[in-house]
Write a protein that binds this DNA or RNA. Structure first.
Lengths: 211, 211
DNA sequence: CAATTTCCATAACGCTTGGTATATAATTGA
DNA sequence: TCAATTATATACCAAGCGTTATGGAAATTG
């Protein structure tokens, strides 16, 4: 009769892991997987690469993360949360120019190859499109569209405040900024140094309308 | 005695093809192969994809082009000669701004997906870097460096003529332009339309120093 | 301590990959 | 007409891919 009261444990999965606990840290393994995907792309990363970098065997990967595709999605979540956080912080900058600068300097930090492999996981994934990773590519493009929409909105607000010259459309400016950042990612993936990328950003900012 | 006079046929290979003539046109097949590499990348393009698009069987490909890697290099040669010719034409424009505009408008024409697949074969190839296509990637990067060096030289000449503000370094400007063009390639490969790319170029040109 | 649950490791699976051996067809020159 | 030579077509190969089944070891629960 009172069964309904204690009927909830199925929804609280973290209560008591009955069997043998796993011997590896999921987050650490996921970080290692991210590094592999980042440097070799989705299709370029083999399960052998992943097992070696993650330090666990294939059955463990499949038990903990599902299949390769779902592992990639989780790695991409981690990437966006950890390496692309600056994207959201940038929107809170006071002026449109400051937003753009924050976005580009953040891109340097994220793409420069001192921390992690060079380039951008999104760019790498959307460029390398075998027939297999079609849904992967679609996922990346959806996330990118969402990021771009937020920036358009920010620029629109800036224009309403008179912070942006009227002859610049928010959509066009967003596409421009993103093209620049994505191009920097291409160069970073091809061995460009942090100084190289800084020259690109400085040049772009030198051209930004001052009035 | 007069042998020396008629000793040249080894250098005139088109004289008499002794055996069975091939039934396909090499250039047509190479164009088809280029389309496959362009839309799926080097590693993403399988031999099955290539045979189907080229309309010939695997042994014919290997007999005519060597292996997959050498086929890619030949397709890349064709791509650069046919689709990247605007890169060299741009350098002959009278002003630095005209050079930049020619470069970007040409990029739109080459990357926009009405003619051939979207995006840029160089960007696709250098981004998609499995462990296998390492030498392929190196080849692309070498060609890109050569193109960039030519643009640096052109901007340097422009600066000597007073055609370019002194506070803009030719190297930095080149990296900036290339980042923009490469970013446009990323967007074109993700389904951006010609109008989308034109907005990017117009925005960039609106920021170009006028004085 | 027994039972149970979950883990790790090996090995195999079915499939696709780039590349090739072999046999047949088509042309040239004698 | 008969060899010599070259292209085509079918089939095959070894290797690598993502994925899964199996068997035993280890840790928590009752």
């Amino acid at each position: 009769m009172e069964i309904a009261v204690t009927d909830a444990p199925a929804t609280t999965p973290c209560a008591a892991p009955k069997g043998r606990p796993r011997e590896f840290c999921v987050d650490t393994a996921l970080t290692a997987a991210l590094g592999v995907f980042w440097s070799k792309g989705y299709e370029g990363a083999t399960m052998a690469d992943l097992t070696q970098a993650m330090g666990i065997t294939k059955p463990s990967i499949y038990a903990a993360f599902g299949n390769k595709e779902s592992l990639f999605h989780k790695a991409l979540d981690l990437y966006e949360a950890e390496k692309l956080a600056y994207t959201r912080e940038a929107l809170q900058q006071p002026t449109a120019r400051a937003v753009a600068e924050y976005l580009m300097r953040g891109a340097i930090a994220a793409q420069s190859n001192d921390c992690g492999p060079g380039g951008c996981l999104r760019v790498i994934t959307s460029s390398a499109c075998g027939s297999e990773g079609e849904s992967i590519k679609a996922d990346v493009m959806k996330r990118r569209a969402s990021s771009q929409a937020a920036l358009v909105e920010r620029f629109r607000a800036a224009q309403a405040e008179g912070d942006l010259p009227a002859h610049l459309e928010p959509e066009a400016l967003t596409a421009y900024i993103y093209a620049l950042v994505q191009g920097m990612a291409v160069q970073a993936g091809s061995g460009a140094t942090r100084a190289d990328l800084e020259r690109v950003v400085d040049t772009s900012l030198a051209m930004w309308p001052t009035r």
